[in-house]
């Protein structure tokens, strides 16, 4: 099946109030748990965080794993979107 035709299911994780390294560990745990679906483009993980360090550590780690990452500022928190790599 052409992966471009799949609309990924969005899975949100609200980790506001947590700070590094706990935020990274939680994110990594979810990235490991969903790796098959992420690689197939079936899911998109969104981590909501208010920890600025996490906007660097999570994207760095996820990109090293081959995923595409974007960080969006939403109101008083950041949304880190992790999805299938290019």
């Amino acid at each position: 099946m052409d992966s471009e035709l799949i609309t990924p299911q969005v899975m949100e994780f609200d980790i506001r109030g947590q700070i590094c390294p706990a935020t990274l560990l939680i994110a990594l745990k979810e990235l490991n748990r969903s790796k098959e679906q992420l690689h197939k483009g079936e899911v998109q993980l969104v981590f909501k965080t208010d920890n600025r360090d996490a906007t660097i550590t999570i994207p760095d780690a996820a990109e090293n794993m081959g995923y595409a990452v974007s960080v969006q500022r939403v109101d008083d928190y950041y949304a880190i979107v992790v999805e299938q790599g290019h």
């Binding site: 700070i19 390294p21 990274l24 560990l25 990594l28 360090d53 550590t57 760095d60 794993m65």
Partner: peptide, 29 residues
């Protein structure tokens, strides 16, 4: 190695650390 900060005892006590299994998480990563 993953580019983040060390664990703080007040953030993750020994029991929570065992339950979270950070070594397992990082190994999978």
């Amino acid at each position: 190695v993953m580019g983040t900060l060390p664990l703080r005892a007040e953030e993750l006590d020994d029991k929570a650390m065992r339950e979270l299994d950070p070594i397992g998480i990082i190994a999978d990563s």
